[in-house]
Design a protein around this nucleic acid. Structure first.
Lengths: 136, 136
DNA sequence: CTGCATCCCGTAGTGACTACGGGATCAAGG
DNA sequence: CCTTGATCCCGTAGTCACTACGGGATGCAG
């Protein structure tokens, strides 16, 4: 298990969390990650709390939440005023969107597979082009 | 069936094909649609051939082909030197990508659904947040 | 102290559009 | 013929979530 024992440089944090270094700076620019302390020379020093927040963001992104949702989830997860129903609503909505997308892609794959399969039948005209060119 | 009998304005073409007017201009900018003739005042006048090409692009996009693929498909569909095997290869590769994406989303939906389902069990801690916060 | 890895920052590029703004032109009705 | 409102022109910038680049400043090991 990854633990963040001491202050990490941005490169070390990137390695520890698997989040690209430039992405971490991007998250800071858009206000998703708080600004960390700096060394005298201006290099970022990350605390364990930063590491946990970044790991949270990463897992949410892996689950397909858009950054706006991640922002909401972070707010809803604030210690003290945790809102489970809010979190659940967000997750449910997201699940619905994912399932809709799957249904879309399933239909698409069906059309593609059916058309490509007809190629094997040794047609004269290309069935794929036929589909793309045929009106309506 | 939609037929393009005469020269259409960009707005009429947009309506006939269901492609946004600004998108048509965008396709022209990136060289996907050829430049049409213009009226003396500079307004675009589209021929039936333009209409057919745009409809082809639209159907390919609906099937999820990226614009680079659409470009290739258009080249492969050139009358005279039609390449069925090339078209088939592109379509097969795309189908593979679509199926991979579906598999990804299926796994994702499973995780989300499983986690959300645990919310109903009347937990004290929010299972969704638990998942996002837990290390590993 | 030398050299190389790491870090800084701002900017621009990606894909596939969409939106905006300010001006020109067109087509129909009076 | 003239007005009016729809349509069209163009260039630019915004979207999302990053990623890449470049040129300069540090950090740290040998």
């Amino acid at each position: 298990m990854i633990t963040f024992m001491r202050a990490l440089s941005i490169g070390a944090l990137a390695e520890a969390t698997g989040v690209n270094l430039e992405t971490i700076r991007y998250y800071e620019r858009i206000g998703l990650m708080p600004e960390p302390d700096r060394t005298r020379a201006g290099h970022r020093r990350y605390s364990p709390a930063h590491g946990r927040r970044l790991a949270f963001i990463r897992r949410a992104r892996e689950l397909g939440f858009v950054l706006a949702d991640v922002r909401s989830l972070l707010a809803l997860a604030e210690p003290g005023r945790t809102s489970c129903s809010g979190v659940r609503a967000l997750a449910s909505a997201h699940l619905g969107a994912v399932r809709a997308r799957i249904a879309d892609l399933d239909r698409l794959a069906g059309v593609l597979a059916g058309t490509i399969a007809r190629c094997d039948a040794g047609r004269i005209h290309c069935p794929v082009l036929d589909m793309l060119e045929r009106e309506r």
